[in-house]
Design a protein around this nucleic acid. Structure first.
Lengths: 189, 189
DNA sequence: TTCATCCTAGTAGCTGCTCTTAATAGCTAG
DNA sequence: CTAGCTATTAAGAGCAGCTACTAGGATGAA
């Protein structure tokens, strides 16, 4: 009974905030007939940000502040690079990279960091991604710092196979294997 | 002289906040090289609301317009959606999405469009990408319009398998298979 | 000199949180 | 029956970004 109640309330909470982000914890507590603490626990479990963050996110979107995906060549900061061997980049996430109604970072930002690190690793004027197999292992919350490590596994002429693993502290959040091609035999970057 | 300074500052303040409402008093004080108190007096005299109120107003305005679909979470424009079935989105690329030294669109933009379309397809308040297998089939040049088509292949409880194919005119440029999870069993979005 | 204006400073209090620790009730498996 | 678990509530410290108020120093004009 009680686990049903909790699950129902949490689902209701997600839907309610998705439909209207302007509720305070106080109002939510009254709506669901529980204490403020319970609402805060729920938000914590569900990764739902506080009122001010939700409002800010809506406003930032309206203002076009949200980065769809940054336009610089490298997403994140390159802190180490060994051309055709290995490299590390760091990406500090922020609320603009999360979903509107939760503080979980959207996957394509994590992908973008990994992909651009892989591309940067290749010792060629132009490298393009041919294909990739990726896996998201753990959610990343906005504000967390993602460290991506990349290793070149194989070099075959114009083709490179690169493995990227991304971490938040000790927790692995992403892994991917990218197949890149250099120069003219373009597929995509 | 000093009345000029004050008048100038206040005019600058109004203009600055009109162009970007996201400054704190602290930041404004630094910008105008005065104390926080002066900024607060200025805001008081000019009837300018505090940061949180400004942000809230922007959010409330924006909220009236968008609402129905959380479509601004989508990279590209959603032009058709059939929840849990299929959807189409369009992304107009521009030079900011290309590599610095070539007019080829960077892969993560294409991925972002496909990924966010897949997420939007799922009929749940929160869906996250678990893994994906993707392939870049042809390069996209900056300025080209990418049309992404997505189909839900499988629904298994909280799991969805979604196929996305992206085209520039008749030319297919991308394909991907995404495995998404709804709500709690979070991996990544 | 005196006075008003401008600016700075400090304090108290507010809202809506976060983070931490702890206590309580109810259920469940050994 | 008891130990351990989950769900809930509570209490306290602290924070950001304010409002509102009081007070004092600096500057320029009369």
């Amino acid at each position: 009974m009680s686990r049903t109640r909790k699950a129902q309330r949490q689902q209701g909470l997600v839907e309610l905030l998705a439909s209207d982000p302007f509720f305070t914890d106080q109002e939510l507590a009254e709506h669901f007939q529980v204490s403020i603490q319970t609402i805060r626990l729920d938000r914590l479990e569900l990764g739902l940000p506080e009122l001010r963050e939700r409002v800010k996110h809506v406003a930032e979107k309206a203002y076009g502040r949200v980065k769809s995906v940054a336009s610089s060549d490298i997403i994140g900061d390159l802190i180490e690079i060994n051309l055709d061997k290995s490299g590390i980049s760091v990406l500090d996430t922020d609320t603009s990279m999360g979903f509107a109604n939760s503080n979980v970072v959207r996957g394509h930002h994590i992908f973008a960091q990994a992909n651009s690190l892989a591309v940067a690793l290749v010792d060629a004027p132009l490298a393009l991604t041919g294909s990739a197999e990726i896996r998201y292992l753990n959610p990343v919350k906005t504000g967390e710092r993602i460290v991506a490590k990349a290793y070149v596994l194989q070099v075959q002429g114009k083709k490179r196979i690169i493995r990227v693993e991304s971490f938040v502290r000790e927790r692995q959040v992403f892994q991917g294997e990218f197949i890149l091609f250099c120069r003219e035999n373009i597929t995509q970057g």
